[in-house]
Amino acid sequence: MNPSSGRSRPQRPRHETVAALRPAYRAELADGPQAFFEPLRLTCPWCGSARIGGHLRTSDLLQHKPGNFRIDRCHSCRHLFQNPRLNARGLDFYYRDFYDGLGERQLDGMFSGRAASYRRRAASVLPYVGEAKRWLDVGTGHGHFCEVAREVLPDVVFDGLDRSDGVDLAAREGRVERGHRGGFTELAPGLTGEYDVVSMFHYLEHSTEPIRELEAARATLRPGGHLVIEVPDPDSRYARLLGRWWLPWLQPQHLHLVPMANLRRALAGLGFTVVAEQHGSAHEAVDLVAALWLALDEAAPRDDLPWLPARPGRVRRALRTAVLLAGVPALLLATLADRILARSAEPLGLANAYRLVARRD
């Protein structure tokens, strides 16, 4: 779910765009944020145990849309999940203007600037998928990973799948050979046995039904093909040290945070054999600087946002700028600390993600 860099459209001033969006947001919030949630679950969605309890409470620290969110932990299998979970209306509301619309240009810069990370992903699985011919990247967004991965795997044909229209752009720009638009579980029956590799990079945590996504991956893989999964690691020490400021909680978008042991067992139950487990190469060196930025952004007066009642005045906008500028030295130090600690992220238990490569037997 990456933003687009290839769309050409006139850009009007941001405050005009925000003002134009405000009436629609005001109407949608008329019933309050409670309209965006399913009923509270009383059992774990992973194992069915009733031994669940509150683990973390937070708000939307990135967009600052109204609402409060709770992550529960299962005390039987240790699975973490949003509870109550967003319903379809809530998912639409909280995703809107994040990857597209108002947030598109900002997110495009972030995703398109991660070539080194994408190259590292492709290189890390090369020993296991070196003979692959066709690769499906699920949740491909605008296909930035596929574009970079071709440098590492020039003989592989990359296709992409995503719910957003970004996948159409990826196909037009030549980043993917074919773009499949829609939900993976719905499209999988039409793609049975087509692929040597299926990848899910930071996709599974967004899914409402992760096991069904794994079943879809199995269906689209040829026997002997490989599934590559990368997800946030809820067992990272950073998750405990940073609390609600740990970026990979990413509420309200992340619905499930799966401990590695749970995912390994689920894969085994579906007929996969895990051939590689990677922590250090899956780690992104952003934990400290992201936590500090989230805290600064929360402390500063709000930016002009369409889900707020009115545009902040000039004084509040100036105060926001002053707060963020004052934090720049600390942000630079946090960035340096992240890079230094990244060298030992795996032995220190700080890796914020893990990657599994599993062969369909």
Rank of each mutant, 00 (worst) to 15 (best):
L356F: 03
F184Y: 11
A30W: 01
R14K: 12
L29R: 06
R14I: 07
R26K: 14
R121L: 09
L40E: 15
W246E: 00
E147Q: 12
Y94T: 03
S207V: 11
H206M: 10
R339C: 10
T273W: 10
R314E: 15
R339D: 10
V156L: 04
D159M: 08
G179E: 01
A261V: 09
R316E: 10
P232N: 05
W135P: 09
D235M: 05
L348S: 04
G101L: 01
L187M: 10
D72G: 08
L227E: 04
V125C: 02
A310K: 05
L61V: 05
E298V: 12
L214I: 11
Y238A: 06
V157M: 06
R317T: 01
A295F: 12
F158P: 14
L341G: 04
G54M: 09
W246N: 00
D72C: 10
R265V: 07
R240C: 03
N262Y: 01
S5H: 13
D60I: 01
A290T: 08
S207P: 03
F81R: 05
P33Q: 08
L242R: 04
G160E: 01
M200C: 08
A276M: 11
R73V: 15
R237F: 07
G327E: 08
R316N: 03
R339V: 02
A337H: 01
L332H: 06
P39R: 00
L42V: 08
L305K: 14
V157K: 13
R114D: 11
L305R: 15
L305S: 14
R222E: 06
A300M: 10
Y99C: 02
P329I: 06
R302M: 13
R85P: 08
T220H: 08
T58V: 02
D60G: 11
R7E: 13
V289P: 04
R105E: 15
H180A: 02
A342D: 11
F201H: 02
L333I: 13
L153G: 07
D165T: 10
V315E: 14
R89F: 10
E173V: 09
L294A: 15
T335K: 14
L107R: 15
G160C: 01
P252F: 04
S117D: 09
L91H: 12
E346W: 03
G174S: 11
P3Y: 04
P23D: 01
L40V: 14
A219K: 15
V197I: 03
G225S: 09
R359W: 01
G182D: 02
D338F: 00
A27R: 14
G141R: 02
D97Q: 04
A123S: 15
V357W: 00
P23E: 01
Q34G: 14
D233A: 09
Y128V: 12
